[in-house]
Computed example of a mutant assay.
Amino acid sequence: MRTTMMLTEEVVRADLARLLVAAVEESGRSRGQIAHDAHVHRDALRRILAGTRSASLGEAMRILAACEVKPHAQMLLFLVCGSDQAVAWLQSDLADFFAEFSAEFPVALERILGNQIADVKPRWAKGTALRVARLLSDHIVELERKDAFLGNFFAGEAGGARV
Rank of each mutant, 00 (worst) to 15 (best):
Ala35Met: 01
Phe105Trp: 15
Ser56Tyr: 00
Glu100Val: 04
Leu64Arg: 01
Leu20Asp: 02
Ile34Arg: 02
Leu76His: 06
Asp96Gly: 04
Leu57Asn: 13
Phe97Lys: 08
Asp96Ser: 06
Ala38Val: 05
Arg18Ile: 07
Ala125Leu: 12
Ser83Val: 07
Ala118Pro: 05
Ile63Lys: 03
Ala99Leu: 02
Trp124Arg: 12
Leu79Lys: 13
Leu94Ile: 15
Leu49Tyr: 01
Ser27Asp: 02
Ser56Gly: 14
Ala103Tyr: 06
Ala66Thr: 03
Asn115Ala: 15
Glu104Asp: 15
Ala133Arg: 15
Ala22Tyr: 03
Arg62Asp: 02
Glu68Trp: 03
Ala50Phe: 04
Pro122Ile: 15
Asp43Ile: 08
Gly32Ser: 13
Asp43Thr: 14
Ala108Met: 14
Gly127Lys: 14
Phe98Gly: 06
Gln85Glu: 14
Leu49Pro: 01
Leu77Cys: 14
Val87His: 04
Ala88Ser: 09
Ser54Ile: 00
Gln33Trp: 03
Ala60Cys: 01
Phe97Thr: 12
Arg42Phe: 07
Ala125Ile: 11
Leu57Asp: 12
Ser92Val: 10
Arg42Tyr: 07
Ala118Met: 04
Ser30Pro: 06
Gln91Asp: 13
Leu79Ala: 09
Trp124Gln: 14
Phe78Thr: 10
Ala50Val: 00
Asn115Phe: 06
Ile34Ala: 01
Ala35Ser: 12
Ser92Met: 04
Leu130Thr: 10
Asp43Cys: 05
Asp93Trp: 08
Ser27Cys: 07
Ile117Ser: 10
Ala95Met: 09
Ala60Asn: 02
Val40Glu: 04
Ala86Cys: 09
Ile48Pro: 00
Ile117Tyr: 00
Arg18Tyr: 00
Val107Met: 01
Lys121Thr: 09
Pro122Asp: 10
